[in-house]
Each structure stands twice: as C-alpha cells, then as structure tokens.
C-alpha cells in the first residue's frame, strides 16, 4: 500500500516536551484517526506534516516528496482544517472564497456552492457572526473545494454539537467514496472515529504507541479484570498496563485470544474501546506499568 505521509525518525524538542525517534506512515485511500491525550503531541506531529514547524532531525515526506524541494506541489494537494479560528472576522464566506480560491488551480466553484448549500452556510454573513460549528464547516468547505488528495484535520469536531458533528462525519464519508482520497484527523471524540476510521494511530507523550487497523484493535485489545492473586511476574507480561485496586486488578491486553487461553474462566475479559485503551495507556490512576 502506498504511503501518503511518511515520518521517519523524527526528533523535535521543546522546553517541556519532546518527540524522540518518531516514525509514522499514513496509507493512501484510508481514514486514519490520530488519538492521544492533551499534550501527547498530536498537534506537533500535524504541524510537522504541514511544514509549520520543522523537525530537529528526521525526515518528513508527503506524497513521497520533501518539503524543502516540493513545498508548493505538496501543499496544493492538501486540504487542512485547524482547530482554531483562522478565518478573517470582518470578511464574509464569499470574501474568504475569493481570497482562498485563486491559491488553487483545481478549485471548483460549483463544488464550493454545493457544499455550502448542503451544510447550510450563508455566503454573505461576516465570519464574526458565525458560530463555532459554522466556522468549522466553513473551514471544511474551503479544504474540500479544491479537491485535495489528502485532508489533514486537527480536532475538527471539538466543541461542536452532535448534529453538526454528524453532518461533518457524513460529509467525510462521502469524500471517502473516492478511493484516491486520504484523511488524517486527530480527535478527542473517539465515537466520531468509529463510523469512518480505517486505521488508528495512538500517540502518548510524543511516542507512537500503536498504529493499527481499527478492526484489528477491536478484535485484539481487551480489558481484563481479576483477583490480585492471579498476578505474578509470569502473568503480568501478558498485559500492556495494569491497574491494581483493593478488590483486584484491571489490565489492558493487546491479545484477547491469548488471555482467554491462559486465564480461561478465572478473569472477566471484555473488548476494550479506544477510550479505555487511551485511559490505560496514559496510566489511568493507581499502580500502572506500561510496556
């Protein structure tokens, strides 16, 4: 499978945060959800992808090209939606279109109008009168109207009401009917990913914990609950993280089948959802070890 985004051995260091030897591939034709807690490094990685910041060392390749030589070619093929407000407050959506459209040769006015109609966006209303949801929808329409090969979205659904979120997700589903398109989106709202994501990449403290197909995660990851006597040096190795409480332990495993075979009926095993995986990976509370 062709990779649209390739990050290789990235190092990026700030005062209180660093990314060390991060490598990541995003496959063409799929939706990859990028999850992680606040401050885990999601926005930093996305800025690296957009060339807004540069790595201290390592390689960022987009569509197999390097930003240093092909910056404009790369950016022409990307649509972006940022979490913050980057639309001119005193301008209308129509004015914004007049500013953005000439930046792209492949911009389609008919598509722009179609999306605006579909998302019920007024063209002649100033941006400062738009709600948060309308601004996000406007950003998405701008990002889609030049028919990008890759859509990068940083927390696009954060702070949106359920109706707007649903509209947003439905539109992305329609975009993905074209198998040449790729979407990479970060989000806190894990439930938004289930209907659209093919792959999930999980980042924690600047490290990629895993990057796997969603169905693989759903099949293999599980929460295991049992009594503390079951834990010893041999059994602990089956878990990615363990939380001990007064009444027993709760642990995360990435091998549902193996746990079933090893512990049989002595433990309760339930499929883990992404939020639980994030929670346990982050450490949760109590005595947790993470491999």
């Amino acid at each position: 499978m062709e990779n649209v985004i390739e990050l290789k051995n990235i190092y990026k260091s700030y005062k209180n945060f660093q990314i060390e030897d991060l490598s990541l591939q995003v496959k063409k034709g799929f939706v990859t959800g990028f999850i992680g807690a606040n401050g885990a490094g999601k926005s930093t990685v996305m800025k690296l992808m957009m060339n807004l910041i540069r790595p201290d060392s390592g390689e960022v390749k987009m569509f197999g090209m390097d930003y240093s030589k092909h910056e404009k070619e790369i950016k022409k093929r990307i649509g972006f939606v940022f979490d913050d407000d980057i639309l001119y407050k005193e301008l209308t959506l129509h004015d914004m279109k007049k500013l953005i459209a000439p930046c792209y040769k492949q911009w389609q006015d008919s598509l722009f109008r179609e999306y605006c109609d579909r998302l019920e966006l007024p063209l002649n209303q100033k941006m400062n009168t738009f709600s948060k949801g309308m601004k996000m929808k406007a950003s998405l329409v701008m990002a889609l109207s030049h028919q990008p090969d890759l859509l990068i979205m940083d927390e696009p659904t954060a702070g949106l009401d359920p109706i707007v979120r649903r509209q947003f997700i439905e539109l992305l589903q329609d975009v993905m009917l074209d198998e040449e398109k790729t979407i990479f989106l970060s989000t806190h709202i894990i439930s938004d990913l289930a209907p659209i994501a093919d792959f999930i990449t999980f980042i924690n403290s600047g490290e990629i914990v895993f990057s796997k197909a969603l169905h693989e995660i759903e099949e293999k990851y599980a929460i295991v609950r049992g009594s503390l006597e079951l834990l010893d040096r041999d059994t602990e190795q089956y878990f990615l993280s363990i939380k001990r409480t007064d009444v027993g332990f709760e642990a995360l495993t990435s091998d549902y089948q193996q746990i079933k075979e090893v512990f049989q009926d002595e433990v309760i095993v339930e499929k883990a959802n992404l939020e639980e995986i994030m929670y346990y990976s982050k450490g949760g509370q109590g005595n947790v070890a993470f491999d």
Binding site: M50, L52, E71, K76, I86, Y88, K89, C103, Y104
Partner: peptide, 18 residues
C-alpha cells in the same frame, strides 16, 4: 494586525505558498 488577529501565519503557510 489582521494576520495576527486570526493567526494568518497558520492559514497562509498551510496554503501553497513558500
């Protein structure tokens, strides 16, 4: 000022310009 107000740095650097 307009650019600072809306973080135009982010907008215009994400568009196909060097």
């Amino acid at each position: 000022y307009y650019e600072e107000d809306i973080n135009g740095h982010k907008l215009w650097n994400a568009l196909p310009y060097t």
